[in-house]
């Protein structure tokens, strides 16, 4: 079983990337489980044709921890991909990080964490211990950073490297950085910039995903690109990404950059 986690700045396209990876893997004949680890609960929506599935936390709240079964929290979407949403509190109250921890405990107890590939799609930033849960021992061993060439997005990715580094330093920590996914914003030299960033943190650019209006069209039709436009170049880019991830053997302990280094890097590309 391969377990991967996608992290990156809020709004960078983690869910779009995750659902398309999951869809592409399922088309390859693999059994896939995607777990949305964000209280916004919209990670798996495109796999579920626009449906916001009941979340683990909602179910626990309504029916109690002991009363729920796998059927209550695991829903099958496009290509047989099994979808789970952790859920969490309304914005502004409670502790969403604790919600992620509790979700993992429930999924463990239900024996739901099994598949050829488990894809964890995690909230924008590792704001507390709870959101690092998918990186802990026994869960995702490979983290993929989703970033564009924008400085703020690189900054968030760099920050997540600190969490990976911290967790990989533990004696039983198995979490490593699998690579950097460039989800492009169509900036000049963006691929080169993100590839250089990946190299500088001691990793590699695993796939460049161009910006394409087909992504929006697919989402308006409540589908992944893999399902909506399987013959498109964009779908091919996602399939390549999925294959690269499956075949990836390179796992690194990243070296996060200092903020000044990061700025210099971005500046070099803008100045060019």
């Amino acid at each position: 079983m391969k377990q991967i986690a996608l992290y990156g700045k809020g709004g960078i396209g983690k869910s779009t990337t995750s659902t398309n990876i999951s869809a592409a893997l399922s088309v390859m004949g693999l059994d896939v489980l995607q777990i949305g680890c964000d209280p916004k609960r919209d990670s798996t929506r495109m796999l579920m044709h626009g449906r916001l599935i009941p979340t683990v936390m909602d179910q626990v709240r309504e029916r109690g921890d002991k009363a729920i079964t796998q059927e209550d929290v695991v829903f099958t979407g496009y290509g047989g991909v099994r979808c789970v949403e952790a859920g969490g509190p309304e914005p502004g109250v409670g502790c969403a990080g604790r919600g992620i921890i509790a979700t993992f405990q429930v999924l463990e107890r239900l024996g739901a964490l099994h598949a050829d590939v488990v894809v964890y799609d995690v909230l924008g930033d590792v704001v507390c211990g709870g959101f690092a849960m998918p990186m802990r021992e026994g869960y995702a061993q490979e983290v993929y950073l989703v970033t564009s060439g924008e400085l703020m997005s690189l900054y968030a990715a760099n920050n997540i490297c600190k969490a990976i580094r911290r967790l990989s330093g533990r004696s039983r920590g198995q979490c490593r950085l699998g690579g950097v996914i460039c989800n492009a914003k169509n900036l000049p030299d963006e691929k080169q910039l993100v590839a250089t960033f990946a190299e500088r943190i001691g990793s590699t650019l695993i796939q460049f995903i161009p910006r394409d209006p087909v992504v929006q069209r697919a989402e308006l039709n409540r589908m992944t690109v893999i399902e909506y436009a399987p013959g498109s170049d964009q779908a091919e880019a996602y399939r390549l990404l999925a294959r690269n991830i499956i075949e990836n053997r390179r796992l690194d302990i990243p070296e996060p950059l200092e903020i000044a280094e990061l700025e210099d890097l971005a500046y070099d590309f803008i100045a060019d």
């Binding site: 626990v60 969490g88 409670g94 969403a96 604790r98 919600g99 509790a102």
Partner: peptide, 10 residues
């Protein structure tokens, strides 16, 4: 309890 910690205790 844990539910209140996650969803808020107000």
């Amino acid at each position: 309890k844990e539910q209140e910690i996650i969803f808020g205790g107000e």
